[in-house]
Design a protein around this nucleic acid. Structure first.
Lengths: 229, 229
DNA sequence: AACTTTAAAAGTGTCGACAATAATAGATGC
DNA sequence: GCATCTATTATTGTCGACACTTTTAAAGTT
């Protein structure tokens, strides 16, 4: 269930596959943030030509996972606190709007599907064996469904295609695997209710608060880390 | 004064130049929307190799000006009413947030600069010789300055780097050169006031209304066109 | 005449090599 | 010893050619 590929395009070309591999490698931290990318070296490593590699690099650049300077080369993006907060600001605006649109545009079937998903999450949480991994997947799945529910291609593209991996990369780099599990679940529940009520204004407000709370939680953690060290 | 290039990177490589030319050609309609792009043909036309052309195509794809399908090729994006409205939804969310951030993060100098710009626009408008072109430039300039004022690289990238040209393309294709001139000016004035007052909440609200009004104006025009024909 | 199958043509994906630019190391001058 | 300039090296940008896929056109069948 690749959350990153809304259109479910199979990785037909080799550049696709290399892009997919490198994407994972960068997000998971196997290729260090800020490290320089040597085209000849990586081409040899993946056993492909530089042309193909550059095609993959172009797509990585589209996801903001690497940065290119003409005649100089590519570097993996750095994970700074400012960068993380910037993304949260964008998410607050865009996912808030996506939530409003979802309340307007989602089909009844889609809403029912999302409510079913929520129940399933509730069971997992009740059993208390929901590890952080599942929680995170659940959280991502929820946000993902809301975004798709907006039925707005631009929103879907930006949020699922571009920002999604960057968010994951930050989470892994900063070691924050889905905080606030129980509260987040309750918030999800209220948001879905607002969507089911077709109350776009409330849905947007709740989603913005939800993401804003997540941002503040991160700010707090950062502050604690800063004090400890 | 290239509004599209926030970082002011000079077009150093030939792929940059071809990208710039094609961007203009597509936005201005010299390359028809929906038309297929033949790589060999265009490469011959610009007198470059296909590799270089493909590099340019990759950047056009990043701006959502063309769409690529693997093993099939590229097409210039189509301008549909739904697509235009989708963009306005995104702009309402993002520029609204940018406006809030601008109220928080702009320097006093930047605010003074924007107020000076507004006065200049007022003079031009008072003289009543402000043609549609200048009005449009002024409108874009205003929005541009607010976006930059957010000091949020993600916002700047998405709005100035990606959506900007698409918006221009739609305006030209649908022949809507900055409508609502006088009202828009008044709205600009109020927004700048809110920013100067450091009232982020109001600034966001006003910007969202401003863009929302623009969207509704377009919806009205579309409806009128539909009735006439 | 319409549909399927097959072959030719065009187009995209990939490759290796050359040219131009930037980074590095060494030499020279002060 | 340090800075500047120069030459070498390495890397990126660009090119033309080949391989594979898709599309188009033609031939054949029902």
């Amino acid at each position: 269930m690749p959350l990153n590929n809304p259109t479910r395009q199979p990785l037909v070309t080799t550049a696709d596959k290399v892009f997919d591999q490198m994407q994972h490698a960068i997000v998971e931290g196997d290729i260090a943030p800020g490290s320089k990318i040597s085209e000849p070296e990586l081409a040899k490593q993946y056993d492909i030509s530089r042309s193909t590699l550059r095609e993959a690099l172009n797509r990585l650049e589209k996801c903001h996972l690497i940065e290119r300077k003409p005649n100089v080369g590519s570097r993996v993006v750095e994970c700074t606190i400012e960068g993380l907060l910037e993304i949260y600001v964008v998410r607050e605006a865009l996912e808030g709007m996506a939530c409003r649109q979802a309340a307007m545009n989602m089909t009844d079937d889609e809403i029912a599907d999302m409510q079913a998903m929520l129940k399933q999450h509730a069971n997992v949480q009740a059993l208390k064996d929901g590890t952080a991994y599942y929680q995170e997947e659940g959280d991502l799945d929820f946000h993902y469904k809301v975004i798709l529910g907006s039925h707005n291609q631009q929103l879907i593209n930006i949020l699922c295609g571009q920002l999604y991996h960057l968010v994951r990369m930050y989470r892994i780099q900063f070691g924050m695997n889905s905080p606030r599990a129980t509260r987040a679940f309750s918030e999800h529940s209220h948001i879905i209710q607002a969507i089911a009520d077709r109350d776009g204004e409330l849905a947007e407000l709740l989603m913005r608060r939800h993401i804003g709370a997540s941002r503040k939680n991160i700010e707090k953690k950062i502050a604690e880390q800063g004090n400890q060290e």
